[in-house]
């Protein structure tokens, strides 16, 4: 017998409270947290009586997922499941951010969740049913309006007007999306990295970095080693999330290139050396977006992780060959 639970947002969190009602089909608590079952996932599984599944190594069909537990810093994972309208619990305090921010709504998503946020659902669950039927009537109303308008013939002027309006609206929407991503992801990243860079340069730690990173990043063997380390199968999924580490390292290398400690033509191979792990944290989610079967995902995760050990260094070699003649 399954138990319904209510999950509310923790300190600094967003969204919720969500009421999870397991059914015979929809009863898997899926933990997509870079391997292993997250303690929160284990807790929810225990309280609901549902099985907890490691979504990183085992694929689960979308219609069987009761709730997805993620530890996403705000780039992709936190939006993917809300977009599919699957209940999502983020253990990190992340609100509506990332490219899928518009799908992250309080009715499907809750963040900063710790164990104290989870309670057995109280009272009559029929209340929930009423809520979920409300949007349907709205859609019905929309359909009715559309039907009413269908019958009316439009004259030429109206049609031209609508066409122009449509194009202008697309430009406007493009601008709005751009500004959204600038404010929600680009500017916060700039703020945090420039703070770190400032402290590094003002405190003198910059010299240490110059003396350690620069010699490694200005030789081919050094970069091959970096790419190999980034691609080691149990390290690569940890380095992945949000490409934050690659971005910070990229910025540090950029500073060294600017200072002349690393020759500029090494920029190209360096871009690949620090990025051998790209997307390794996201394999099950990315593949499920491509509608891969659970069995395919189970094999696909190790296949990609092993492949990177080979292709990471190869990428550096290719980039090294193509850097010949760059800035010389």
């Amino acid at each position: 017998m399954y138990q319904a639970v209510t999950i509310k947002a923790g300190k600094g969190g967003f969204g919720g409270p969500l009421t999870l009602i397991p059914t015979e089909i929809r009863n898997k608590v899926v933990s997509i947290t870079g391997g292993g079952i997250h303690p929160i996932a284990a807790k929810i599984a225990e309280m609901t009586g549902c099985p907890a599944v490691d979504g990183f190594s085992t694929g689960v069909p979308d219609n069987e997922i009761l709730v997805a537990i993620v530890d996403c810093g705000g780039t992709a994972r936190c939006g993917v499941y809300p977009k599919k309208r699957i209940f999502t619990v983020n253990v990190l305090p992340v609100g509506q951010t990332g490219p899928l921010a518009k799908f992250i709504t309080p009715d499907i998503y809750v963040s900063a969740v710790d164990e104290s946020c989870i309670e057995l659902a109280e009272g009559n669950l029929e209340v929930k049913k009423e809520i979920s039927s409300a949007p349907k009537t709205k859609e019905q109303a929309k359909a009715e309006v559309a039907k009413m308008n269908e019958g009316k013939p439009k004259n030429l002027a109206t049609r031209i007007g609508i066409a122009i309006g449509g194009v202008v609206n697309k430009f406007y929407a493009a601008g709005r999306e751009t500004i959204d991503i600038t404010i929600k992801t680009i500017l916060p990243f700039m703020a945090f990295v420039s703070m770190i860079l400032g402290i590094i340069s003002a405190s003198g730690a910059g010299d240490v970095i110059a003396n350690t990173i620069s010699p490694i990043a200005s030789t081919l063997p050094g970069m091959l080693i970096v790419s190999f380390i980034c691609a080691i199968p149990f390290i690569s999924p940890v380095l992945g999330p949000g490409a934050v580490i690659a971005q910070v390292v990229g910025t540090l290398l950029g500073v060294q290139i600017g200072l002349g400690n690393i020759p500029p033509q090494y920029a190209l191979p360096a871009l690949f050396a620090i990025d051998a792990q790209v997307g390794c944290d996201f394999i099950p989610v990315g593949m499920s977006l491509g509608e891969a079967e659970p069995e395919t995902i189970e094999l696909g995760v190790p296949a990609i992780l092993y492949s990177r050990v080979i292709t990471g260094p190869i990428a550096v070699l290719v980039a090294y060959v193509f850097s010949i003649g760059l800035y010389s």
Binding site: T75, G98, P99, T178, I181, T182, T185, I186, F189, V193, G242, A243, A246, Q247, V248, V249, G250, T251, L252, L253, G254, V255, I257, G258, A267, A270, L271, I274, D275
Partner: peptide, 12 residues
């Protein structure tokens, strides 16, 4: 747009 600085960082 969310991960520009892999490239932009080095490009800077």
């Amino acid at each position: 747009g969310g991960e520009l600085f892999v490239y932009m960082g080095i490009a800077a």
